[in-house]
Design a protein around this nucleic acid. Structure first.
Length: 578
RNA sequence: GCGCCCGUAGCUCAGUGGAUAGAGCCCCCGCCUUCUAAGCGGGUUGUCGUUGGUUCGAGUCCAACCGGGCGCGCCA
């Protein structure tokens, strides 16, 4: 509808230009159609007259009236869609849509069903997220990152893009060596050898002990004759395997499945790191100083130069990350997206710099930051510290709250906003959590369908697709003409709902283009709210009138379809019963 | 000191240049013989951090300042 109205107004502008009565120095893009907050003005509005009023030295109201007259003259072409064009102070042009337009939206939704709102694009996305270290359990911050990444991926797929989801495993390097050393001490002590002692920077025993006991139980024999060095390596390997497996399990519980689990170790093993360094050197982007290899990142927008290889020969994090991202580029994606916790934002300039130095097109690379999650309990902030053993793990929260509620809590806020996650509130998560309200609306519509089945068993409503049901109904005028209530107030609510449903298509595009999946969550809530109102207002099933019942069922089905599509994007279940 | 994010109702948050700034929670009142009351209707709640600027129009864009969070390693 926005496109039709823009067209219509643009045509009016062209006519006015020809008449020379008005200075119309605008282009088509500056015509913006919006939705009035107060629906009594109309269903759509346009503030074009404000833009024209300055140069014409006329009041916006006068200009709006002139445009309106031209529009009214042209309206016959759109009579099926637009029933009224009016002007209101201080200078808005308002449009009211007709029932024909509403029926055309209904038609589109019921024909498309699960596909309503989908489009087709060619771009290929790679979205890397979570990427928690295999050295310990995931916490609530990882959970937010995970849920955001998952919803964004779902959203982009729904918007028609090709998306691959990837988890990067830091399975080698200094921290893994440190892990191995800590595990060695823990293992020996657990076996009764108290000559082994932890270093100051060891991982705390509390984080290791459970897994070490499990390893002891499962692998005692095969580990018994190893030297310290060998044991340290083996323990680290076993520990990582177990950690990664439980990460996979927990993420699956959260309804998240990655296409690839990318091992950092493969970059070292297959020569990718050397290749990357060679390319940097060939591009003359490095130099040596104090025994270290430096990147000339200051020339590329970073605040200073960075070290790639330390004077002890070890690679820096940046060097490995550069090789990893070069690998991503080589895989041929149009858009490479990283989702990072906000505490890593300082790494962006140096990574962007090294990518430039590697001849990668930085425009197709984007880091989305998710802000911190504060855990609170009864209003008091829980300070998390690994050392103090006060980490609240993802698993603990997930087990308490469940996947659906957890996903909703973590996706409802904009990624740039920090979240206060109250454990007590989440545990009681019942009426307080909007997700149950949205699911309730879905369950309620399913309940209506079940009831309808018993009223008229001849229509196989439960086992047919939306499209099939619609196919039976759409040629029957007696059904289609009864979709909308005659009562004005009830009709206005139905109109509001249909316009919202139509807006879903726009919303998918907008939220996908701006990478803001939380908007889907809010939209779903609004829609559920209006459905509940409709449910109270309008009777759906009439035991003595099958056609009228079917007409209202079509309306319910349209809402149910869109709520279902929203829940699908959010990765939240759409229950038939609650 | 520099960089990023935030500041909107008692609390948690929407609001991506348009009309009188919205929801949920909390508090009060009313509604189950009727398609699910995990629901609905009604009531109360604001110097949109402050000050300037851009604009016909600013919670929204720009600048400065105030307050809070995070980050500024040859750590990972």
């Amino acid at each position: 509808m926005e496109l039709i109205l823009t067209d219509l107004i643009w045509q009016a502008c062209l006519i006015l230009k020809g008449q020379n009565d008005l200075i119309v120095d605008i282009d088509k893009d500056s015509i913006v159609i919006e939705k009035p907050k107060n629906l009594s003005f109309g269903d759509f509005s346009c503030g074009l007259a404000f833009k024209l009023s300055v140069k014409n030295k006329k009041s916006p109201l006068d200009i709006a009236n002139i445009i309106q007259q031209v529009l009214v003259a042209k309206i016959t072409e759109y009579q099926n869609y637009i029933s009224q064009i009016s002007v209101s102070k201080p200078g808005y042009i308002n449009f009211t849509v007709s029932q024909g337009y509403l029926l055309s939206i209904l038609d589109e939704i019921l024909n498309d069903g699960d596909n309503f709102g989908r489009s087709k694009y060619k771009d290929k996305f790679l979205i890397e997220y979570v990427s928690a270290n295999p050295t310990g359990p995931m916490h609530i911050g990882h959970a937010r990152n995970a849920v955001f990444g998952s919803c964004l991926s779902n959203l982009l797929k729904f918007a028609g893009f090709y998306v691959e989801e990837e988890f990067y495993i830091n399975d080698t390097g200094q921290q893994i060596i440190k892990l191995g050393k800590s595990l060695l001490v823990c293992y020996r002590r657990e076996c009764g050898n108290l000559d082994y002692n932890y270093d100051d920077d060891s991982y705390p025993e509390s984080l290791l002990i459970d897994t070490v006991r499990q390893i002891l139980h499962d692998h005692k024999n095969s580990l018994s004759n190893l030297t310290d060095d060998q044991l340290s390596v083996s323990l680290a390997k076993l520990f990582m395997e177990l950690t990664i497996n439980s990460q996979k399990e927990e993420l699956e519980q959260l309804n998240i499945n990655f296409n690839t689990w990318f091992s950092e170790k493969t970059l070292h093993d297959n020569g990718s790191i050397d290749e990357m360094l060679d390319l940097l050197k060939a591009n003359n982007m490095t130099y040596e100083l104090d025994g270290a290899l430096w990147l000339k990142s200051k020339d590329l927008g970073d605040e200073r130069d960075r070290v790639l290889i330390k004077n002890n020969g070890h690679l820096t994090y940046l060097a490995v990350d550069a090789a990893y991202h070069l690998n991503k580029y080589k895989r041929g994606f149009d858009k490479i997206i990283n989702i990072w916790g906000a505490d890593h934002h300082g790494q962006i300039p140096s990574l962007a710099a090294v990518l430039k130095a590697l001849d990668c097109n930085v425009d197709s690379f984007k880091v989305i930051l998710t802000q911190m999650v504060n855990l609170t309990k009864n209003g008091e902030i829980l300070r998390m510290s690994k050392r103090m053993g006060t980490v609240v793990t993802l698993k603990e929260v997930l087990d308490e709250v469940g996947s659906d509620a957890m996903r909703y809590f973590l996706i409802e806020s904009s990624p740039s906003n920090s979240i206060n996650f109250d454990l007590e509130l989440a545990k009681q998560a019942s009426s307080e959590n909007p997700i149950f309200y949205i699911q309730y609306a879905h369950a309620r519509s399913s309940s209506i369908m079940r009831k309808a089945m018993s009223l008229s068993p001849s229509y196989n409503l439960l086992n047919s697709s939306v499209k099939e049901i619609y196919a039976i109904c759409k040629s029957n005028k007696d059904i289609i003409e009864n979709v909308f209530e005659n009562d004005n107030e009830k009709y206005n609510l139905q109109k509001k709902i249909i316009l919202e449903l139509a807006y879903f298509k726009t919303l998918v595009q907008e939220s996908a283009n701006s990478y803001l999946p939380h908007r889907i969550a809010h939209f779903a809530y609004e829609l559920a709210y209006d459905f509940q109102k409709f449910y109270e207002n309008s009777k759906v099933l009439y035991s003595d009138n099958i056609n009228l019942s079917l007409a209202r069922i079509l309306f319910v089905l349209a809402i149910r379809t869109v709520i279902g599509n929203c829940l699908k994007i959010l990765g939240i279940s759409a229950p038939e019963k609650m």
